[in-house]
């Protein structure tokens, strides 16, 4: 046990953590891709003509957003086998993350779609475009660009929640760091390194999103 920073130990664990970092990155990207799709589906359901679908979708979104991701992960990982659907930890975790952040993304999509002026729907109707084509070809292309920064913020948030996967034993960064720590009784280096990794990536991503916001803002200005 050593209270101080041990560079030799750092050198020893860095390659192991590097591999785990790849898993974290992979979970982030796959989870977010899933969230984007689920979010769009939920958003469309929230605007459905059928009030039953609309309210059910609203309730599902509210429910997912009001309960902890950790419990949702447990529920899918431990619960689904009871329905004869045993998933490995990574897959169950990804689905939970995709659902959770899908609910958040649904709200973002909805705001983006609401912000497209009513006149666009009316103009499309006046041209006799069917509703589906209107949505896909007229509304969505206008709704998405302004919400890219907001979606980006959720990507960063999702990234920072991937350590929850450690709770069901996925060998991502946090779990790897914990195992390393418990093996050597040196927690300082692995956990601090994990923190640094998240800090660097989050700051980078935030800077990127700000840049994107500015560029979108600049591009949006002449149009309006």
């Amino acid at each position: 046990m050593n209270a101080h920073w041990d560079w030799n130990y750092v050198h020893e664990i860095l390659p192991i953590l590097g591999e785990a970092a790849l898993i974290t990155l992979q979970a982030t990207l796959l989870g977010f891709a899933l969230a984007l799709v689920i979010g769009l589906v939920l958003a469309v359901c929230r605007m459905a003509a059928n009030p039953l679908v609309r309210h059910a979708a609203a309730a599902v979104v509210e429910f997912i957003r009001s309960t902890p991701l950790l419990i949702q992960i447990f529920f899918l990982y431990y619960g689904l086998p009871e329905f004869g659907l045993a998933l490995d930890a990574m897959l169950a975790g990804l689905i939970a993350i995709g659902l959770h952040y899908g609910a958040y993304c649904a709200e973002v999509y909805r705001a983006g779609i609401d912000n497209v002026p009513r006149g666009q729907w009316e103009a499309a109707a006046a041209l006799n475009l069917p509703p589906q084509a209107t949505f896909r070809r007229i509304i969505l292309p206008q709704a998405i660009p302004p919400i890219v920064p907001a979606l980006g913020n959720y990507l960063v948030a999702l990234f920072k929640e991937t350590p929850l996967l450690s709770a069901i034993g996925v060998l991502e960064l946090m779990q790897t760091a914990k195992i390393l720590g418990s093996e050597s009784f040196q927690y300082t280096e692995p956990i601090t390194l994990v923190g640094l990794y998240f800090l660097v990536f989050s700051l980078l991503a935030s800077a990127l999103i700000r840049l994107l916001e500015r560029r979108l803002g600049v591009r949006a200005a002449p149009r309006s």
Binding site: P163, T188, T192, G195, F198
Partner: peptide, 14 residues
Amino acid sequence: GTSALVQLFWLFFV
């Protein structure tokens, strides 16, 4: 910039 779980583990283990 860092994740809540990392912060929690840092306070608890480090």
